[in-house]
Design a binder for these strands. Structure first.
Length: 599
RNA sequence: GCGGGUGUAGCUCAGUUGGUUAGAGCGCUGGCCUGUCACGCCAGAGGCCGCGGGUUCGAGUCCCGUCACUCGCGCCA
């Protein structure tokens, strides 16, 4: 007999009654009775009840053995009396009588309980991640993650994609997020950077003729955390394909995404095909480029009404007159909401969005038809309110909030307010995954801080109209073959058809202020490669952690990462980051120059 | 870097307008209970009320500062 087990803890059934078997696992719970001690023995697979009778020599030691100790039990599989069958458990028809017992490793006092689904402080959970991972919910999330990744791999391989590993120690890139740097011992004063994504490598694989590449790729960006953004590192399903148009990428990837979501939907629906929304339309209707299509209402531009004669709302009027805009955020069916509902949203805008506030008008049936009510309604002639409501598709019993400012600010507040209003009103559709493609991103944006034109997304993207557009159009009017996949308001991936011509690359970078020499230096690998026959190519990179997060229904990305860091990018379990031995610093030719308060 | 929230027993939480000895559940220890499976019953141990100042006759409670965790803003081609 194997020294640890003949079966796992989710294997024994009525058919095994009478067999002598061995199980190993953790003590999940204990119930002590005068005639018997019951132990729920748990492993990765499930739970089996062990019964220990007082005649056993080890009765006392098992009785005192703490929860979460690892034990090995040998004994006979017994049938349970009809009355004692536990129908909630796969192994509930039987139990294992302990004839021999070994305590493999007794547990110390637990910093957090394993059984049950109570919530616990995250720092304790992270410090003792190995314990938290024993708990059912997290354990299942991680199993789901593994299954999702297998499924993604299979779907890609079935389509003829090949998986390659790309370097982790690579060169810093001047674009994008802050890099993580690694000092070079052999090259004093020089640094590697961890890849923010294998962007250039995957394009070089296309130049190398591999045609279809994918990788479950680790990506490193030194940026601050969010609920849906793990600090430091995350994984992408990185994809690139040669001789592909934007449409080819969509045809290849949409079935992978829809398929994997359907596979693990567990009763939730996935709507296909994914609607395609131009970036500009998304900003206008949803206030951002990651719309949550589960929300059943859209924003409405009402700027035109604020300059009409008779409208006395000076603050917004002057904003519109100086080139700004006003977005209306519908709040349907709010007739029965108390004043506090509106106050609360106003406070939310001030606190969370650091906005001046969120004005609103309530719409009611009055003597002469639709009437506007609320603190700012008096600044508007009633016919303006009626026309404004009509444009926003609202009627009696509804309300509308207003977001005003420069286009960017107005959209931003309106988009966030749309989500907040929907949340407060319980109007977000449940049990559905609503995807969309966002297409036609602008190639460039105006960088107000540095007073220059900058890339809006990926500098390697192909501008729509190609070289002609780069040469002859206003850079801010050029669109790119650049696209995102969004699901339920979460940006899942972004991708693009790449600019594969050397001249086009130089020109595109020149517009963003990068000289020929700088491009040669910073993007040496790629620009050189493109001189030797680069195929047209494009790709995309869905975020694996976010896919799993959506499928797991997790509120927080750390719930789907095995060993995550906290918001301050610290690994509380491994104590990283940490100071290092001075000898290590000397080898790397580094000397510390810490801020005063840390010296 | 900035703003919000939280911090009371190993864990989850309650704690009134500032007023006796800071409570409950889970867990732990001991005892009881004829088969439990969220077992039940009795008893017990366990508290720098995050930390430091202040106001007050008196602070878990009010004020200031600080730390930790978290959510958001900035950041994220």
């Amino acid at each position: 007999m194997h020294i640890y087990r003949t079966h796992n803890c989710n294997e024994l059934r009525a058919a095994n009654i009478g067999e002598t078997v061995k199980l190993s696992g953790w003590i999940h719970s204990k119930r002590e009775h005068p005639n018997a001690l019951f132990i729920d023995l748990r492993d990765h697979y499930g739970i089996t009840q062990v019964v220990v009778y007082p005649v056993a020599s080890f009765f006392e030691s098992l009785k005192r053995c703490p929860l979460e100790s690892v034990i090995t039990i040998t004994g006979e599989v017994l049938a349970r009396d009809d009355m004692a069958i536990n129908k909630n458990r796969a192994t509930g028809e039987i139990e294992l009588r302990a004839d021999e017992a070994i305590i493999e490793n007794a547990s110390a006092k637990l910093p957090l309980p394993i059984a049950g689904d109570q919530e616990y402080p995250e720092d304790i959970r992270l410090r003792h991640r190995y314990l938290d991972l024993r708990r059912e919910k997290l354990h299942n999330n991680i199993i789901l993650r593994s299954n999702v990744i297998s499924s993604l791999r299979k779907r890609m391989i079935d389509q003829g994609f090949m998986e390659f590993q790309t370097p982790i120690l690579t060169a810093s890139s001047p674009e994008g997020a802050r890099d993580f740097l690694v000092p070079s011992r052999l090259n004093p004063g020089q640094f590697y950077a961890l890849p923010q994504a294998p962007q250039q490598f995957k394009q070089l694989l296309m130049v190398a003729g591999f045609d279809k590449y994918f990788q479950i790729a680790p990506c490193f960006r030194d940026e601050d955390a969010r609920a849906d953004r793990s600090p430091g590192e995350f994984y992408q399903l990185d994809i690139e394909m040669s001789f592909a148009t934007q449409e080819d990428v969509f045809q290849a990837i949409e079935p992978v995404m829809a398929g994997v979501f359907e596979e693990f939907a567990d009763g939730r629906t996935v709507e296909t095909p994914f609607p395609r929304i131009p970036y500009k339309e998304s900003m206008e209707k949803y206030g951002n480029d990651k719309p949550d299509l589960r929300i059943p209402f859209e924003l409405c531009n009402v700027s035109e009404f604020f300059t009409e004669e008779g409208v006395e709302f000076k603050a917004f009027k002057s904003i519109v007159e100086s080139g700004g805009m006003v977005q209306a955020i519908p709040a349907p069916c709010t007739a029965d909401k108390p004043r506090s509902f509106f106050d609360k949203l106003n406070k939310w805008a001030q606190k969370e969005m650091q906005a001046p506030g969120l004005g609103y008008i309530r719409l009611e049936d009055g003597e002469n038809g639709l009437e506007g009510k609320g603190p700012i309604a008096k600044f508007f002639p009633q016919d303006v309110i009626r026309r404004m409501a009509a444009k926003a598709g609202l009627g009696a019993g509804d309300a509308m909030f207003f977001s005003a400012g420069k286009a960017g600010d107005a959209y931003k507040l309106a988009g966030a307010a749309r989500a907040e209003v929907a949340k407060q009103l319980g109007l977000i559709e449940e049990n559905v995954f609503k995807f969309c493609w966002i297409v036609d991103f602008p190639m460039y944006v105006w960088d107000e801080d540095n007073k220059k034109v900058d890339f809006s997304h990926n500098p390697f993207s192909m501008p729509q109209g190609g070289m002609d557009a780069l040469k002859n159009k206003d850079p801010l009017d050029i669109l790119a073959y650049q696209y995102d996949i969004v699901c339920n308001g979460i940006e899942l991936s972004s991708g693009a058809i790449r600019n594969h011509q050397v001249d086009g690359m130089y020109k595109a970078f020149e517009i963003a202020g990068y000289s020929h020499d700088v491009v040669d230096k910073e993007f040496a690998g790629m620009i050189n490669a493109f001189k030797y026959g680069a195929p047209p190519h494009g790709g995309i990179a869905p975020g694996v952690d976010r896919i799993v997060m959506l499928l797991a229904g997790a509120e927080n990305i750390r719930e789907v990462i095995v060993f995550p860091m906290n918001q301050q990018a610290q690994d509380l379990m491994m104590n990283a980051p940490a100071e290092v031995d001075p000898k290590q610093l000397r080898e790397l030719h580094l000397r510390l120059d810490l801020p005063k308060d840390l010296k």
